[in-house]
Nucleic acid binder design. Structure first.
Lengths: 189, 189
DNA sequence: ACCCTGACCCTAGCATCGCTAGACAATCTA
DNA sequence: TAGATTGTCTAGCGATGCTAGGGTCAGGGT
């Protein structure tokens, strides 16, 4: 029955519309400004329609985050291709800098998405795989541990920088130092 | 005029009462649960009293954060005394783990407190000084940069761990690896 | 062709939030 | 003692997330 399919297609379209609107609003004015009323007005539907697509506001933010994971994977892959570890670091930090609200939805705002325990979003697993591959040559066996540590360091740099808690200049120095620490092979017994 | 002084003393006492109540509530139920009404009820005054002490809710959270900075400095100093870099790392991560709401107020929740630009809270400067001293022997001149990086890495580990985004076991491995990367002298030209 | 049924969406409203205005009481000054 | 000042509370405003209930319109069966 094509009528049924057409309906579902339209619903899916509207879901994307809502998610896109939320993301735009968040990037433009921050997550505090993303309210159900503003969102409803932006997609030109009434508030309750949002709840026929998503359980609540947090679920909308999580949908935005999932979009982010996919884009992050692409950006990281491209970064590694350009310049290995340093390219990965630059790509990660650029992503966080250029999409601050998106980054918050992915990694800062509390959310029901947990990574290391329970099921992991496939798109995020892919992003982490880029880390694993890039770090493996220097890991001396402990690939996952080094990948987690490298990721954590970048996350720390990204969030503290965003919060104006690091000297704005010296960014380059910090990144270079980090990459050197990870890349320069030392005795890791 | 001692009457005047007595008044001021009482006001100061009540300020501390409010801050302590906010901190307790946040640690017990998270910052979302810290509302002006619950806070007012807990200190047994009406809501407007809060605003005669603090500009708004964020200012109360900032006051809690300032308490945290002082305690963090003490904890870090003790950690360094015990085991240098590793002690510092352990103390920092333990602090974040044991006082998650306090840590959020200090470093995660957006706040008007900025560190690296403009004026810095003295208590936080003291905490960073511990980082500087602990890291200096390995910095090869770039002490501040290495301190910022070490701090960022710990911050990343702390927040991602708190968000269940790292494998709960392997914590020890990550910390040891980080400390080794920073401490083992390599060629840093 | 007609009616009925069900899916869809909107208006209206609830409880709660941060914050403030204005009235009331208690205390100090002269 | 009378007036002024200081302090506190009650009540309320606008905005929040979310939901209940009713109305409208299209699709399907006879």
């Amino acid at each position: 029955m094509p009528a049924q399919q057409r309906k579902e297609k339209a619903r899916e379209e509207r879901s994307r519309l809502i998610v896109d609107a939320a993301r735009e609003l968040a990037e433009a004015e921050g997550w505090d400004a993303v309210t159900t009323r503003k969102l409803a007005e932006k997609v030109e539907y009434s508030q309750p329609v949002l709840y026929s697509h998503f359980k609540n506001m947090d679920a909308i933010a999580s949908a935005v985050a999932l979009q982010g994971f996919e884009e992050l994977t692409v950006a990281l892959t491209e970064g590694v291709r350009r310049a290995k570890l340093r390219g990965l670091a630059d790509a990660y930090l650029a992503f966080a800098r250029e999409h601050p609200a998106l980054y918050q939805a992915m990694f800062v705002r509390r959310s029901e998405l947990t990574f290391a325990v329970g099921e992991i979003p496939a798109s995020l697993r892919a992003a982490f795989a880029v880390f694993l591959a890039a770090v493996d040559p220097y890991a001396d066996g402990a690939t996952e541990t080094l990948a987690e540590l490298f990721w954590s360091s970048l996350h720390g740099l990204a969030t503290l920088q965003a919060g104006k808690r690091l000297r704005p200049d010296h960014h380059e120095n910090r990144v270079e130092l980090l990459v050197n620490l990870v890349a320069v092979p030392t005795d890791r017994t």
